[in-house]
Structure formats: structure tokens, C-alpha cells
Design a protein around this nucleic acid. Structure first.
Length: 749
DNA sequence: TAACGCTGCTTACCT
DNA sequence: ACAGGTAAGCAGCGTTAT
């Protein structure tokens, strides 16, 4: 028989790949046999022939072996390809034979499956096979077209719990409301949550969604729901065909996070995506995310304030929250889908991977398609010491007018492409012409073969160029898809240099990473020299960017043309700032089209009190728009009075810090560490790595950091106003010093 | 014993 | 847990002034 549908989810079951397809109203479940394998690069495999072992009650054994030709780190070799009956068999053999040169035993089987079959996540597939029970056993599978989320059944999900302090405990507090959105909005609540959970499960099974989308549902909603359901004696059968959901712990970005598996459905948690892709957002609450993405307003109500809402208001809030989740998903999921296609990974896996892991997945895929076998991750020995990065230079702090900001377009990717940089051709044995010597670099690249990394980067750049070309003619939905495609191509290309210097990457080579940054420094310094020759003065450099002021005529476009004639990388003019203030390296602000653009200033940092940031912002705007020192000073002094006279609300003095490591790992007490300890001791609340807290400083004796507290438990009377005054003065002093000195200079002229 | 000064930990930022 | 470069606040601790 032949079936077709959108491939929306894949799972691993022993050595089978289970495929979930959506075909109109129907769901198709198929299973494909896969033969797990690994490579033995050189040496004998006699010991492996007939290998058998028992582990967790299963028999693991080697099935077959064959001699195949592959490119091992770019060198053609005959290697052994060894097939086994189970994935764990490959891993066991790798552990048991540490001296054997084994590769690929830990490769992602679902990714390998997708690559081997030429499939894309969310594509339309055709399957030839025969039915076995509820499934179809796959004989042949192929991609026959494109698909999209629109063709799938999506269910948005969230729940709310009222609690005293915002950290509810399942044993004490029942779920106040569960809210779902598919074709329509549905809310479930009851006095005790037993009925609500029952009805929710019933509804969920009836809806039978392909994709579940929420915000922090893996770390919060589902674990809470699981505990409550257990207490109420209810099974949480939310999987396809009534299978129960599975809670797992996984090491992610240096911390244990919970991952919930809902068999047969793609469970997509937006929170880890936001955590990874929007590190600049201090709280990561949905309202903040909505604002960042420009998808409308949503006012977050902190968990500790939910108790003040009536049932009606709570329901209204839940509905608004789920609409906000939907908007964030609609804006953000396009990128994740394109990432999953680019890297050949199931869509539900992508949100949980770091950028490094995504780059690694792409490198693995491209290597596999070329018949290469690369080292496994973490297999290359790490070289000691650090290497130099980008050039950073500031002529002098001060106020400048007419500042042109130029940068080298995609500098590191362009360097990799232009100089054919890749580990296997770096310092090759075959070349006598040491081509990087002319740049003053002691290394060289091969002039006979094109390196793998350079090939991949070139392809990414070329693909992006084509997509951007198509974008010119595209509109609406099509445009959005193309935009997402070019965006992920850029993100991945930009991370490739870092990947070469990442100690656990397959292509780790410190000297190579160092060479890339060294070439970057040479180029930006060369541009500085040119700029100086062409009638401009360089005032600031950072890595791939240079800021200049005109000595005579401010012909910034003319300078751009001249630079591009001289330089083999592409130079762009980002903008010309009417006026700019430089405080230090990585701390400056520009006035561009009447708007303030601040970099590194306190006002962009989450760990400064909100009020101080607002006053600084206003002061910067005044200075940039030409107000005198005296005027600005006057404004700042009036603002200062509000602190002096205790006329601010505690919310205006809040700062945010993120717990960067496990509490035991601290050698000093930071504000966030003290808050984490206080929450544990006083409230029994445990903060885990990566969580942020809104902090205020209370009065008392001892060092300030020891007086940091979560804002919700204290009032204005508790605040250490003197501390805020001191910090305010410190920040304002250095913010205004430049204008003051500038004024003095004029006075003495 | 308070004040001072230095070191290096800590956080968050820039490219 | 893609890389390195940077500023700033302040704990922690030894030294100096009182």
C-alpha cells in the first residue's frame, strides 16, 4: 500500500524509527527498520565479529561488517562499517574497546535516518509499505513535497496556580485553571482540580493534536500537572493511542532541565528557544518576549499576584496568556523549522539544542553527504591556553559629531571562505607556497584542495545570497519563510568560527581559530589606515566594526566606495550618527535618526536599578540632542531628589540578576546567590541555574550583596535608600563627566 | 579598629 | 557548553592610619 502525509514527528523505539504523519483528518503511524552502525577506522575487528552481550535484559550483538571507502578527515581510506542490532550495542562496544579507533557510535540516529532517506522535517512524504497492527511497516519512503505547520493540528497549552509567594507546591495548591487553544479556546477549572484535570484529558484526547506548544511547559506546567494528577489518582495519558507522558531530566546548557515526552506528538516548549536566542531579555516573561518580537502587548501578572484575581479575571488572564503564547509561536517557530530543515533534525529537538550543537549537526550532515567521517564530538584533545580574539581600540572618551559606523560584512565567514580555512587543509604537507606568510601569519592553507569548512561556509553564503534574491520578489507568507531561511543561514554561518575554537567540536583546532581572528585584526587595522589616508579620523574599533569622523568633507558614501576598492572583504556603512558619546571600550551611544542607540551603558544592563537606567537614558538623550551640561545636570539633580526623599516605588529600584551557576560553586557572595539562599531558607523555594530574580537592596548592616532580596517579599520601608543614592551618584558622575569636561574645553579655547 | 587599597570573582555586555 | 574582549561592582583580605 501507499500512503502520504506531512512528516511531523519521529521517535526512536529500540532500533526502529517511528514516523508520525498527518494526512488531512488522518494520522498515519509508520515504522522503519534501521541498521545502527559505527566505523572502525584502522586496525583489526576480529574481536568484534560475533560480539554478543546482555544489557538491561536485551541481547546486543554485532550483525554484519563490510569494508567501505570513506574520507577520514579528508583522506580517502578503507574502513570497517560495523552493523549491530541495537544502538546501545555501538555505545557498549565503544566503551569496551577504548583502544579501537571507533567513530560514529554516538551519532544521532534520527538525524542519520533523515539524511540517509533524503527527508526534511515537516516535508510531505510518500510511504510504500504494509500494515502491521496500527502501523505501517515502511518498505520505501521518500520526500514528495513541502509541508507546513498550517496543515497540522496544533494545541496551545498553559495552566495557572494561585499561591501565596508565586512558588506553588503541588501537595498544597491545586491547579486553578488549565487553558487550551486549538480551533477554539477552552478553559478547565473546578473547586478541587480533579474534575478539571479529567475534563482536560478528555478534551485533549478528543482534539488529538500533532503539535503541543506552550511556554515553559516542560519545566513548569507538565511537571505540576503530573504531580497533581498523581495525587488525584489520574493517569496522564496525553500521548497518541493513550500513551502516558514521560518526564525526563536532561543536561542542557549546563543545567538539568526537565524534558517532557508526549509520545506521537511534537512537544514544543518556547521557553528554551527564548532562553537560547534572546539572552538579552532579563526576565524572559511572555510580556517581555511579546514586546521584543513586536507582536502586541501582554501584561504579565507575577505568579505571586494571581491570588488577588477573581475566578473570572483569572480566566480572562489565562486566555490572554495563551493568545500571547500563540503570537510568540507564530513569530518564532518559522526560524526553528528552518533550523530543523537545515540541520536535518526533528522539529521537537531543535528548541533544546544549543547553537554549538546545531552547528555540529550541520557539520555532521554536510560531512556525511560528502562521504566524510569526522571525529566524534569531544574526541579531539584540547590544546592549552587562550588565543587572541578581535581588536578593540578607543582613541579617547568624548563627544563626537558625524560619526560613520562601517563594518565588514560577515567578517569571519568571509575570511574562512576567502582563505580556504579548514582543519584538514590547514598547514598541509603538500604546499610549499606558504600563502598566509604575506599577512605575517606563520600558518598556511592548501592551494590544491578546498577544505570542508570552507566549502560549507561558501555554500551557506551562496544559499543566503540566493534566498535574499528571491525575497525581493516574494510577498506575505512566502516572504516570511524566505526571511527565516536567510536568517538561520546567517546565524549558523556566524557561529562557525566559534565552532572551530570550541573544545568539544569535531573540527576543533585552536591555531585555526586563532588564524581566523588574526586575519580579522589585520583587515580592520588595514581599514583604519586607509580611512586615515582618505581624510577621516578613526575613533573606535571593535572586531569587525570601525567608527570614523570626517576631517574635511563628510562624504561617507565616497569613503565606502574607496574602501571597497581596496579591500577584498565587503565593507558596509551601517549608519552615520549625528552625534555620539564614547565612555570606554564597549560603552558608547549614538544619535541615529533622532533616536538613541546605546551600547554597553548601564541603561542597557539588567543588573542596574530601573530608575537609574531611566534617568541615565534621559540624560543621554539630552546630551545627544545638544542640551548643555547645566541643563542635564539640573534634570539629574531633580531626579536625585526622588531617591533622597524616598519618593519611588520599590518596582522602580528593582534590578535583575541571573543565577549563573550552582550555589555550591560560588566563592563570593553575589546578589543573586544571596537571594537564592534566602529563598531556600525562608520560603523553601529552590532556584536552579539559569533562573533570574528581581532584586531590591534592604537596609541593615554588612555588605550590600548580603542585603539583596527578591522584591515581592519586601516594601518601600525596607529599602536601603542610601545605597541607591550612592549608586545613582556613581553612575551619573561618570555619565556627565564627559559633558562637563567637554564644556570646560570649550570655555578655555 | 576604621579606612584604604589591591585582587580576582561575578555579571552582563559587545562584536 | 560557538569564540574572545571589556567595564564595573564589590567581597574578601591584607596593610596602613588613627
Amino acid at each position: 500500500m501507499k500512503v502520504s502525509g506531512i512528516l511531523y514527528h519521529l521517535e526512536l523505539e529500540d532500533s526502529k524509527v517511528i514516523l508520525y504523519l498527518r494526512s488531512g483528518e488522518r494520522r498515519i503511524i509508520a515504522e522503519a527498520e534501521m541498521r545502527p552502525y559505527f566505523y572502525v577506522i584502522d586496525g583489526k575487528i576480529e574481536e568484534l565479529k560475533g560480539f554478543k552481550a546482555r544489557e538491561k535484559g536485551r541481547e546486543l550483538r554485532v550483525m554484519e561488517w563490510e569494508r567501505v571507502k570513506r574520507l577520514v578527515d579528508g583522506v580517502e581510506k578503507e574502513v570497517w562499517k560495523v552493523y549491530c542490532n541495537h544502538l546501545d550495542c555501538a555505545k557498549l562496544i565503544e566503551r569496551k574497546f577504548p583502544t579501537m579507533n571507533i567513530r560514529g557510535a554516538r551519532s544521532d540516529p534520527l538525524q542519520v535516518f533523515l539524511i540517509e532517506k533524503g527527508l526534511e522535517p515537516l516535508c510531505r512524504v510518500e510511504i510504500f509499505g504494509e500494515p502491521v497492527g496500527e502501523r505501517i511497516r515502511v518498505k520505501e519512503i521518500r520526500k514528495v513535497g513541502e509541508g507546513s505547520l498550517d496543515e497540522l493540528k496544533i494545541l496551545y497549552f498553559t495552566l495557572l496556580v494561585k499561591s501565596e509567594d508565586g512558588f506553588p507546591i503541588p501537595e498544597k495548591q491545586s491547579i486553578s485553571i488549565i487553558c487550551c487553544l486549538s480551533d477554539e479556546m477552552k478553559c478547565f477549572s473546578s473547586d478541587d482540580d480533579r474534575e478539571a484535570i479529567r475534563k482536560f484529558i478528555e478534551y485533549f484526547q478528543e482534539e488529538d493534536p500533532d503539535v503541543i506548544i506552550g511556554y515553559a511547559q516542560d519545566s513548569e506546567d507538565f511537571p505540576y500537572l503530573l504531580r497533581r494528577a498523581k495525587l488525584q489518582g489520574i493517569d496522564l495519558k496525553l500521548g497518541v493511542l493513550g500513551r502516558e507522558i514521560i518526564e525526563t531530566g536532561k543536561y542542557f546548557r549546563g543545567m538539568i532541565i526537565k524534558e517532557v515526552i508526549i509520545p506521537g506528538r511534537a512537544n514544543i516548549d518556547l521557553f528554551p528557544i527564548i532562553y537560547r536566542d534572546f539572552p538579552q531579555l532579563p526576565t524572559k516573561r511572555i510580556g517581555e518576549v511579546c514586546e521584543e518580537l513586536g507582536v502586541g502587548e501582554f501584561v504579565d501578572i507575577p505568579n505571586y499576584k494571581l491570588k488577588e484575581l477573581s475566578s473570572k479575571d483569572l480566566e480572562e488572564y489565562a486566555k490572554q496568556k495563551i493568545m500571547a503564547i500563540k503570537k510568540v509561536a507564530e513569530k518564532e517557530l518559522g526560524f526553528q523549522i528552518e533550523l530543523s530543515k537545515l540541520c536535518s533534525l526533528p522539529i521537537s529537538r531543535v528548541p533544546r539544542l544549543t547553537i554549538g550543537e546545531l552547528v555540529d549537526a550541520l557539520i555532521f550532515k554536510e560531512a556525511m553527504l560528502r562521504g566524510w567521517i569526522l571525529p566524534d564530538r569531544g574526541a579531539i584533545e584540547v590544546e592549552e591556553g587562550y588565543y587572541a580574539g578581535g581588536e578593540v581600540w578607543l582613541k579617547a572618551p568624548g563627544i563626537y559629531e558625524n560619526v560613520g559606523y562601517y563594518d565588514i560584512r560577515s567578517m569571519y565567514p568571509s575570511i574562512i571562505k576567502l582563505y580556504n580555512l579548514s582543519p584538514e587543509v590547514f598547514d598541509c604537507k603538500c604546499c610549499s607556497e606558504k600563502n598566509l606568510r604575506e599577512l605575517g601569519i606563520k600558518h598556511w592553507t592548501c592551494s590544491k584542495r578546498k577544505g570542508l569548512l570552507a566549502q560549507i561556509v561558501e555554500e551557506l553564503i551562496e544559499m543566503r545570497r540566493k534566498v535574499k534574491e528571491e525575497m525581493k520578489r516574494a510577498k506575505g507568507e512566502e516572504y516570511e519563510v524566505l526571511y527565516a531561511k536567510q536568517y538561520v543561514l546567517r546565524v549558523i554561518a556566524n557561529a562557525i568560527y566559534g565552532y572551530t575554537g570550541w573544545s568539544s567540536s569535531r573540527l576543533y583546532k585552536k591555531d585555526l581559530a586563532e588564524t581566523i581572528t588574526a586575519i580579522g585584526r589585520i583587515y580592520i587595522k588595514k581599514i583604519r589606515e586607509l580611512v586615515e589616508k582618505l581624510g577621516f579620523e578613526a575613533i573606535y574599533l571593535d572586531t569587525d566594526g570601525i567608527q570614523v569622523i570626517p576631517r574635511r568633507s563628510p562624504d561617507f558614501q565616497g569613503l565606502l566606495l574607496k574602501l571597497n576598492k581596496e579591500i577584498s572583504l565587503e565593507v558596509e556603512l551601517k549608519h552615520v550618527a549625528r552625534r555620539a558619546i564614547f565612555f570606554a571600550k564597549k560603552k558608547y551611544c549614538h544619535l541615529v535618526d533622532g533616536k538613541l542607540e546605546a551600547k554597553g551603558l548601564e541603561l542597557v544592563r539588567r543588573d542596574y536599578p530601573k530608575f537609574i537606567k531611566e534617568v541615565q537614558k534621559k540624560a543621554m538623550e539630552m546630551l545627544l540632542s545638544g542640551k548643555s551640561y547645566a541643563e542635564v545636570k539640573n534634570y539629574v539633580d531633580r531626579a536625585r531628589k526622588l531617591i533622597e526623599e524616598h519618593k519611588l516605588k520599590k518596582e522602580e529600584l528593582v534590578l535583575v540578576e541571573q543565577l549563573a551557576k550552582k550555589i555550591e560553586m560560588y566563592e563570593r557572595s553575589s546578589k543573586i546567590k544571596v537571594c537564592a539562599e534566602w529563598l531556600k531558607k525562608e520560603k523553601g523555594i529552590e532556584l536552579h541555574r539559569g533562573m533570574s530574580v528581581e532584586i531590591i537592596i534592604i537596609k541593615g548592616t554588612g555588605p550590600v550583596n548580603y542585603r539583596a532580596r527578591p522584591v515581592q517579599f519586601f516594601s518601600e520601608e525596607d529599602l536601603d535608600w542610601e545605597y541607591y543614592l550612592g549608586l545613582f551618584d556613581q553612575v551619573m558622575e561618570r555619565s556627565l563627566a564627559i559633558a562637563r569636561e567637554e564644556g570646560l574645553k570649550r570655555f578655555f579655547k
